[in-house]
Nucleic acid binder design. Structure first.
Length: 566
RNA sequence: GCGCCCGUAGCGCAGUGGAUAGCGCGUUUGGUUGCGGACCAAAAGGUCGGAGGUUCGAGUCCUCCCGGGCGUACCA
């Protein structure tokens, strides 16, 4: 029997042979086939799969679609995986998977265990997901949490789809905002020693900067103090950044997000580093010109709206220059074939020109996927809270984790498509915490675990359970739902949309609860998992085991825990 | 002004050009004293922002308009 992962292909080839047979028999005119048009009906009553081929063929075949459907169905070969197809108006061919095939998937899932639904789509190609990458000039806020949830889930999905995935955090430890951070820190530091110095106008007024200064004073005393009026030392800035990065990392670990690499922006400027090489390429291609004292990349010649400055008139490279070097490094030096950048939507003006520049330095712009997530609008007591580090008013990711927990926060972030603006009502998140859908999903996993445990106490295990005994609609429905995981991963990995995961997780949990409560609905205790009938019990435990595997897998992809008990 | 994103049930959101537009919360009704009640089943609730167009078929694609957001820096 074919693998679930190949089921589409299998059906398509059966369909193709049915069409040729119909043509050979003269039931269909010899027309070009516009693909098999296989899709998933919304309503399970219409089968597991359906083809709209007859509708598409009607015009060129000069026949009513329903007749075409009947002709194809008539010539459809017998197959152990699928029942003889049904035809429905106005011209659908509906396929239902055979009961035997559906049942066999329980064994398939149990056999693969934690690797269930792994795909070979990526065929071992190197993929990188870079996410969060917030400036280390302040603590992570709630919006960064959305990026963290999306990025880590995308990384997990791509790994499941067969890519070799690297997770990276780009540390902006160079540039203007770093300098501003340093100036603010030095001001706060001086304040610790009683000097009446103001925070720079464009600086970071948040209280955390004062705390950071206090911490540094506690550690290093007045080592960084300079005579009044002088600028602060560079190594104070370096230390401040280092401490901020450390605290950001701690927050992300609390959030359950880990990285393979923390990439320093500063390192781009090492001798013979990516910056030198990338700019060398642009220069060699005659794409750098000096104008008004600055160095410009002539991006308008490559279709951009305008040229962009790469080196300011004061000699410092722009953020754009850093990013060109960085993406040169990703594609050319490190050889990633797929690069995903997860950015806040406020960066979207940067997308097009970065793609253009990436191509200009020899990178594969096609392999560059930039996922923009709309900013999170926080509400507190119904009132909007503007997220801005510079305004100094922010709700940190740490606070969010304290309030609703990492699992729930991730689930909510993933639930919305990145392009949708979301309101996160903090008060509501708190009061709703016991009714969150995340608990519904995790609770299902805990119940599955507990059933296996309870059975084991009675000396009954899933081993040797005969899946052929699973014939109840709720049982088969649950298996069908588990089978969908492969499809969900495929869609998520090819469209780069993580929101399919939480939606699927809820549907899988619903299928389980429905199966689990079937005996209540029907008032028939023989539908319980643990019954007098040992063979039946073992078969259902086998299903329970598989459901636990599938649910744990999707929870894992979302970066959530799969609790054994709650 | 120009560019991009969003507009779907009271609220929050899904919806690879296909069949009766779904899910969660909330509301109403019923079940279940449980192999874990953080459960199940059912109902009510929609001019898919508006108007044209393409198509056998449009929430989905195209054009215009309205509303919200974000860009449009020698910030990141």
């Amino acid at each position: 029997m074919p693998d679930v992962r190949d089921i589409r292909q299998h059906l398509e080839s059966l369909l193709a042979s049915a069409v040729s047979a119909a043509i050979a028999a003269g039931d269909l005119p010899d027309v070009a086939i516009p693909g098999t048009a296989l899709e998933r009906p919304k309503d399970i009553a219409n089968g597991d799969y359906a083809s709209t081929l007859p509708l598409r063929l009607a015009r060129s075949a000069m026949k009513p679609p329903l007749e075409i459907a009947k002709a194809i169905a008539r010539h459809f070969p017998a197959d152990p995986v699928v029942e003889p197809p049904a035809v429905a108006p106005p011209g659908f061919i509906n396929f239902r998977l055979s009961q035997g095939f559906v049942q066999s998937q329980v064994e398939h899932i149990v056999r693969f265990g934690p690797a269930y639904a792994d795909l070979a789509l990526g065929s071992g190609k190197k993929a990188q997901v870079e996410f969060v990458s917030a400036n280390p000039t302040g603590p992570l806020h709630v919006g960064n949490g959305r990026g963290a949830a999306i990025g880590s889930a995308m990384a997990a999905v791509l790994a499941a789809a067969g890519y070799e995935v690297e997770r990276e955090y780009y540390v902006n430890d160079a540039g203007t905002q770093t300098d501003t951070f340093g100036e603010t820190l030095y001001a706060r530091y001086q304040q610790q020693f009683g000097r009446d110095v103001p925070i720079p106008a464009e600086g970071y007024p948040g209280e955390y900067m004062a705390e950071l200064a206090r911490e540094i004073k506690a550690q290093a005393g007045d080592r960084f103090l300079r005579p009044p009026g002088e600028a602060g030392p560079a190594d104070l800035t370096g230390l401040g950044i280092e401490l901020m990065v450390r605290s950001i990392r701690q927050t992300l670990v609390r959030f359950g997000v880990e990285y393979d690499r923390w990439f320093s922006e500063k390192s781009l400027y090492d001798p013979e580093g990516p910056y030198e090489e990338a700019m060398g390429i642009l220069r060699a291609n005659g794409q750098l010109v000096e104008r008004e004292g600055a160095l410009w990349f002539t991006s308008s010649e490559l279709g951009e709206e305008k040229d962009n400055v790469v080196v300011r008139s004061d000699g410092r490279p722009t953020y754009y220059a850093s990013d060109i070097a960085y993406h040169y490094d990703k594609f050319v030096r490190r050889g990633f074939s797929l690069v995903i950048d997860v950015w806040g939507a406020d960066h979207h003006g940067h997308v097009s020109r970065l793609k253009t520049a990436t191509a200009a330095v020899g990178g594969n712009a096609e392999g560059l996927q930039i996922l923009l997530y709309q900013l999170v609008f926080l509400k507190r007591s119904g009132e909007a809270v503007k997220l801005s580090k510079r305004a100094g008013e922010l709700v940190t990711l740490d606070e969010l984790i304290d309030d609703v927990g990492s699992d729930a926060a991730k689930f909510f972030f993933l639930l919305r498509s990145p392009g949708a603006q979301m309101d996160f009502d903090l008060d509501l998140a708190k009061t709703q915490s016991s009714e969150n859908p995340v608990f519904y999903v995790q609770y299902a996993h805990a119940r599955l675990a507990s059933m296996l445990e309870r059975a084991a106490e009675q000396g009954i295990t899933p081993e040797g359970g005969d899946v052929g005994l699973l014939v109840q609609p709720q049982e088969l429905g649950l298996i069908r739902e588990m089978m969908r995981l492969t499809e969900v991963i495929e869609v998520a990995a090819t469209t780069f949309e993580a929101q399919h995961l939480p939606h699927y997780a809820m549907e899988l949990a619903t299928a389980f609860h429905s199966f689990n409560d079937a005996f209540k609905q029907q008032g028939d205790s023989s539908l319980k998992v643990l019954t007098e009938d040992v063979a039946m019990t073992k078969a259902r435990l086998r299903l329970v085991l598989a459901a636990k595997v599938a649910l744990a897998r999707v929870l894992g992809l979302m970066g959530m825990t799969a609790p054994e008990r709650m």
